[in-house]
Design a protein around this nucleic acid. Structure first.
Length: 565
RNA sequence: GUCCCCAUCGUCUAGAGGCCCAGGACACCGGCUUUUCACGCCGGGUACGGGGGUUCAAAUCCCCCUGGGGACGCCA
């Protein structure tokens, strides 16, 4: 039925005049858009030309955008500048499925418009950023085949593409803002601010910086500087009025400036925050469209104000819906496998993962569910987006992946995959030393190593509980241990052993009370090769996954025991 | 709490005022096929959050309510 429907944009079907006048995006957006387009409508308080969107640009329907149909002259959102988009992950953890999701849609938009796609590494958090994470992010995105035209590994005309290498640029720009009076130094200590927040929360106010250094005299500031006090640089948010931003998917969003506090732009370690670095880099790198997750909407006013402070034209903003857990909260590793490398290690095919990601929020015009990334790019348009936050459904991904295995993979491809990915020389070389002393014939090999290859393990939950410990406390300890694993960069056996011994001690547990549950959780057995060699070979993805499984089993066990009582 | 975003089956979605007492897919249940299992095929139940408008006509446009989510960090 849908198949027969004529194409959705012929003008005779939907006259422009009607659509532009009568259509609207969401109710809110629509109202606002109307208000904003009145000549005398109050505009954003400070500076800059009014940002009222021209009619051809506003979205027009509730669940779905009508941008193309609504933009008489626009084939897409390429108005003035060449299309340049970016994905900007922070190397503070494993490559995230959300990063892949955003990257995919950025790439689609770039491809559709003959634009460039840039990878930028946002490693301004010195505490948590690690080169190893950056490597894994690149590996994960490459595995999926999401390739970028410019990036830290491939270079490009707008580099460097790693923010830690752009410090001089940020300092220049901070100077500029300071000179213009658009920013100021703040000498408040973190403790002082924490206390402020606490008081505000106690009074049930929105917690925000109170501007205590905003209007200090030059003399005071100089005195503090001369005293060598550490400081941050904050932007001056207008104290009144509202800032209007135009989201290409939602229309106008107006936010009262009183809701927005004086964002820190430069930390006391001299590194910029996301807000500064992202604005400066997006401008300097010629980014035309900022396509990012919805969670950024509420800080977009800060960015808009910053663009104005610099005297720059802001890019177009497109906020994608947030991927969700089954309970609708923002997708998280506690509730979902979230690492790209986890999917890789489980044997998901990149094509299937991309295909699945593409159908979250987007649908093909003919409603087909299986399509290649090229087909996706060809058919991609913002007006086929729906804005409700989609639940990431592993069961459906798994089904789709099964279809790819069944329908797209030849026997030859199967053999190659098995040989290269599963039973590769690299893996066998790791396994043999662990197993050879424990078996007498090669036929015992496969049964002895099965748990290195399996997904879920089968074992008695009670095996996880050491003598004198309860299922509940075991679960809690394994959960904390999982957090340690997430932070662990060096996955060698000695490093894991050191980590684990230290962890046991920190929890006040004897090592054997921790190590046996760990062994069972990892292998489903009590007799195994050395534990940390095993962990090391399993890899973080499988370790995490099995910790999660063990936690689930322990939870069920705890509940069962409670019932008995 | 304050602000912002969002709202069709349990889940992903189709839907552009009449083609819709709402279609497809996952999951679930039943059947067929099959030596078995799986795949495949056929069938089944389940949704427009509520209330007001506008209209001859509302899932669709408007308003309010409700619900969900996000943000409120010297994290991104």
């Amino acid at each position: 039925m849908a198949r027969d429907r004529p194409d959705r944009d012929p003008p005779q079907r939907r006259p422009e005049a009607h659509r532009i006048g009568g259509g609207a995006s969401t109710r809110h957006a629509r109202t606002r858009w109307r208000r904003a387009s009145h000549e005398d409508a109050p505009q954003a308080e400070h500076g800059g030309p009014p940002r009222a969107p021209e009619p051809g640009r506003h979205p027009t329907s509730p669940r779905r955008l009508r941008s193309v149909a609504d933009r008489p002259h626009a084939v897409a959102m390429t108005t003035d500048r060449p299309v340049r988009v970016r994905v900007a992950p922070s190397p503070t953890g494993e490559p995230h499925v959300g990063t892949a999701y955003i990257a995919l849609f950025n790439l689609a938009f770039a491809r559709k418009n003959g634009g460039k796609f840039v990878l930028r590494i946002e490693d301004t958090d010195r505490e948590r950023s690690r080169q190893e994470w950056e490597d894994e992010i690149i590996e994960g995105l490459r595995w999926l085949g999401l390739t970028w035209d410019e990036g830290p590994d491939v270079g490009g005309p707008f580099g460097p593409y790693r923010q830690s290498e752009r410090s001089a640029i940020y300092h220049q720009h901070i100077e500029l803002l300071l000179e213009k009076g658009e920013a100021y130094r703040c000498f408040a200590t973190p403790e002082e601010l924490a206390q402020l927040r606490e008081e505000q929360r106690a009074r049930k106010e929105t917690s925000r910086y109170d501007g205590r250094w905003r209007d200090r005299s030059p003399a005071e500031v100089k005195a503090a500087m001369d005293a060598g006090l550490p400081f941050v640089v904050r932007m001056k948010m207008p104290l009144e009025g509202e800032t209007v931003l135009f989201d290409e998917l939602r229309g106008e969003v107006r936010i009262d400036n009183r809701q927005v506090d004086d964002q820190i732009l430069m930390k006391s370690d001299g590194f910029p925050t996301y807000h500064l670095a992202n604005v400066v880099d997006d401008h300097l790198m010629g980014i035309s469209h900022v396509i990012r997750a919805e969670e950024w909407i509420s800080s977009t006013p800060k960015h808009v104000v910053l663009y104005r402070a610099f005297g720059w034209e802001p890019p177009k903003f497109i906020h994608m819906p947030l991927l969700r857990n089954a309970d609708k909260s923002k997708i998280s590793k506690r509730k979902n496998p979230v690492s790209l490398l986890d999917y890789k290690s489980r044997g998901f095919l990149p094509e299937a993962v991309l295909n699945y990601l593409a159908m979250l929020g987007f649908s093909m015009p003919d409603e087909r569910e299986m399509f290649t990334v090229e087909e996706f790019f060809e058919n991609f348009t913002w007006d086929r987006m729906s804005l409700g936050g989609p639940t990431f459904d592993l069961a459906k991904l798994t089904w789709l992946n099964g279809r790819y295995y069944r329908e797209k993979l030849s026997d030859d491809a199967w053999v190659k995959l098995l040989r290269d990915d599963l039973l590769s020389e690299e893996i066998l070389r790791k396994l043999v030393p662990l197993i050879k002393e424990r078996i007498d014939t090669s036929e015992q090999f496969i049964p002895a190593v099965d748990y290195f290859f399996s997904g879920e393990l089968t074992y008695e939950a009670s095996m996880l509980v050491s003598k004198g410990k309860t299922p509940k406390e075991t679960r809690e300890v394994l959960e904390k241990y999982g957090d340690e694993i997430d932070r662990q960069v060096d996955f060698s056996a000695p490093a894991l052993e050191a980590l684990s011994r230290g962890f046991a001690e920190s929890q006040g547990w004897k090592v054997k009370d921790l190590f046996m549950p760990l062994r069972v959780a990892m292998t489903g057995r009590t007799a195994t090769p050395p534990l940390f060699d095993t962990l090391s070979v399993l890899g973080r993805a499988k370790v995490r996954r099995r910790l999660r499984q063990a936690q689930d089993l322990l939870k069920a066990l705890a509940e069962a025991e409670n019932k008995k009582k």
